[in-house]
Design a protein around this nucleic acid. Structure first.
Lengths: 253, 253
DNA sequence: AAGTGGTCTAGACCACTAA
DNA sequence: TAGTGGTCTAGACCACTTT
């Protein structure tokens, strides 16, 4: 049996039941009391086993409700090769955010809360924007984005302040323009550099995004450059793993 | 104080000490016995607090050793826009795997174990390769890749069997050729489609990659296409979040 | 009101690491 | 050998959801 700890074995049996489909998605697992009786162990041992499954993202527990096999969100595919050009080539002159366009194209409800502020950039942001660490100031647009009224992602944009002074970007609330807001004030991005890291969410992210236990996030940061190589914008997006797929099209040269 | 559970408060104090740098990277936290005395709680409560920090990826515990502030690996940046062309344009006619080239360019030791087999593809792989789900057969090359003798990533490639029959790809062990192995047998990839998802590792991945608790992974799948639109290859790479950064260059059109 | 998981206690022995 | 975290027990009360 090569058993190891008791709770590993209990977790293995439950995991196997889930993988065989014996416990279907969304179905309730036996209660802790039932598992105590079934395996003849203490409650703590049962809870260790359930915790192990929860750490693997297989189950979720709710106080007063029970423990359930985790259900998959329908993930949203973000193709970062096309995302920006979508709004640029949009036929309508609508003043809707490009993100909202993509979401509503999938027949889902899009909404976002925007907070605008002026801040001294973190060393990381300053580095990406090619700004001096000390004196620089950035315009920050922090958004919380909702799809079908569920929090979906965080997206914070950083602009060198001197480039966007007195532009519409400093207005609170959604802003947009045909061809993109940056372009409308003469700042044309010709290329992007994207970096993606994978990590566990911070407590703040867990609360803002209402994340279930054991839900990792992708931190996607896109730096946009002008033709002369100047960095115009950094956008840092926090994408919960249970509701996003990140996609790219790449030409082999 | 808005306290909530006792162990949340204990975790918050320790977290704050870490963020302030009072507890530096790699430094040992107070032992569980010390924390019991300091906060006047039972051991279980201390362990709940530590577990909370461990779930956030902030600390790691080792039996018999203690609990320590987690140290950052030096992450490896994978630029998927350039990765494939690197070997294609390589000056040397060396027979080294393109991945190994990239790693050794960073002055690190690269090694991989390769297992070759012929399998019926999973529905997901069959879909990506555009093969019928039932009858199809694929050549599978499963690799475990090591950097400086530490497991680093898993990379499984899938080829439609009829395309690579009797080719060098069916040899076990490393294979390569100037310009790429696929190209050397007349299969030229002109574009790729990449998808990235973020999730917790399976138990198997945890063990193969020797992952610390609360280490999420990126699952990167790249499908390569010929000029006529035929899918030639799917490569699924499992990248642990604590040692990888994924990068892309994107042209704004 | 009954039943669920969440928090917490007090104790015990075990497995592993380091001195 | 001493000290660490890992596993496990038995019991209690609390917070929340459902009926």
């Amino acid at each position: 049996m090569a058993s190891g700890p008791r709770y590993h074995e209990i977790a293995a049996q439950l995991r196997s039941a889930i993988e065989r489909g014996e416990l279907a998605e969304g179905q309730q697992l036996p209660t802790e009391a039932e598992l105590m009786a079934q395996f003849e162990v203490s409650r703590n041992t049962v809870r260790l086993a359930l915790r192990r499954l929860s750490d693997e993202g297989l189950v979720v527990s709710g106080q007063g409700r029970g423990t359930f096999v985790r259900t998959q969100h329908r993930p949203f595919v973000w193709n970062w090769t096309e995302l920006e050009s979508r709004s640029k080539h949009a036929l309508s002159g609508s003043t809707v955010d490009q993100w909202a366009v993509a979401v509503e194209a999938a027949n889902r409800d899009a909404r976002q809360e925007v907070r605008v502020s002026i801040e001294q950039p973190s060393p990381e942001i300053a580095r990406r924007l090619g700004l001096p660490e000390d004196s620089a100031r950035t315009l920050v647009r922090q958004r919380i984005r909702y799809v079908d009224h569920q929090p979906y992602q965080l997206a914070d944009s950083y602009f060198p302040l001197h480039l966007v002074q007195d532009s519409p970007l400093m207005e609170p609330g959604d802003v947009s323009a045909p061809g993109g807001v940056l372009a409308s004030i003469g700042l044309v991005q010709v290329r992007y550099y994207d970096e993606i890291t994978v990590r566990m969410p911070t407590r703040r992210e867990t609360e803002l995004l209402n994340l279930a236990a054991a839900t990792p996030v992708a931190e996607h940061s896109r730096t946009g450059y002008a033709a002369d190589g100047t960095a115009l914008r950094v956008m840092v997006t926090i994408l919960p793993g249970d509701r996003h797929v990140i996609a790219y099209d790449v030409a082999a040269d």
